[in-house]
């Protein structure tokens, strides 16, 4: 385990070390002090633990790496992540997992608004609740919420699955409740296990696209 002190070496040195230093596969980042863009663009299998609270855009564009934040994170956690795992032990601010294509994001606390906005294949598991407009234009992947969801959940959603155990304040445009079949319970159980989040899959409700918006209507194909 190699220790990198963010306040001592600065952000560019920190991230370039994680990008280019092949000497270790395990790093601990100390004194994050809410700094932005910590552990962004990682592209190899490695374990990175951030010892404290991180700022905006933490672990963005991640590939292959496992990043754990021991605390709170700011806006845009794991934005555009491709693969790997990002775990937060505290709460996350807005737009966690935005546009992410793959991998797993686990937020043990609450996530704020727009969690999983435009997600494109990532799995996001939130131990607590999510804020308004979560899953907005979600295209693929799974958003799992063990607590409650705020206003306009899954607005303009495409093919992603949203699972919520608690209450949903309101569904967004073209988002509807879907049947929770055996295959969904099985898939959700596996995902919860992978995320190491304890919850009973059968207690969740599933939400997805009603496919009634303009772009789902074949009759509109002639417009182009």
């Amino acid at each position: 385990m190699q220790t990198l002190d963010l306040q001592a070496i600065g952000l560019r040195k920190l991230n370039s070390t994680l990008h280019t230093d092949n000497a270790s596969t395990a790093y601990k980042i100390t004194n994050p002090m809410g700094g932005h863009a910590i552990a962004c663009g990682l592209n190899r299998a490695m374990d990175v633990t951030i010892d404290g609270h991180a700022g905006f855009y933490c672990a963005g564009m991640n590939q292959l790496a496992n990043v754990t934040v021991q605390g709170h994170v700011g806006v845009g956690l794991a934005e555009n992540m491709m693969s790997g795992t990002v775990r937060v032990t505290g709460n996350a601010s807005q737009a966690a997992g935005a546009t992410a294509h793959g991998g797993l994001v686990v937020i043990e606390g609450d996530a704020s608004s727009r969690c999983g906005i435009s997600m494109k294949g990532v799995d996001i598991v939130v131990g607590g609740s999510v804020g308004h407009m979560s899953g907005f234009m979600a295209q693929a992947g799974n958003l799992v919420v063990c607590g409650d969801a705020g206003e306009a959940l899954g607005d303009s959603i495409y093919e992603a699955n949203i699972y919520v155990k608690g209450s949903v304040e309101s569904l967004g445009s073209d988002c509807e409740e879907k049947p929770m079949d055996a295959e969904h319970i099985s898939a959700l159980s596996s995902l919860l296990e992978k995320a190491q989040v304890k919850a009973e899959a059968s207690q969740f409700k599933r939400y997805g696209s009603a496919r009634t918006l303009y772009n789902f209507q074949p009759d509109n194909a002639g417009d182009y």
Binding site: M33, G34, G35, H53, H72, S93, G109
Partner: peptide, 19 residues
Amino acid sequence: TEYRAIATLPGSEHANIWE
């Protein structure tokens, strides 16, 4: 506006933090 403004307060590492 951002957590980094709070990070220097004594005990911030164990604070309850939320949006």
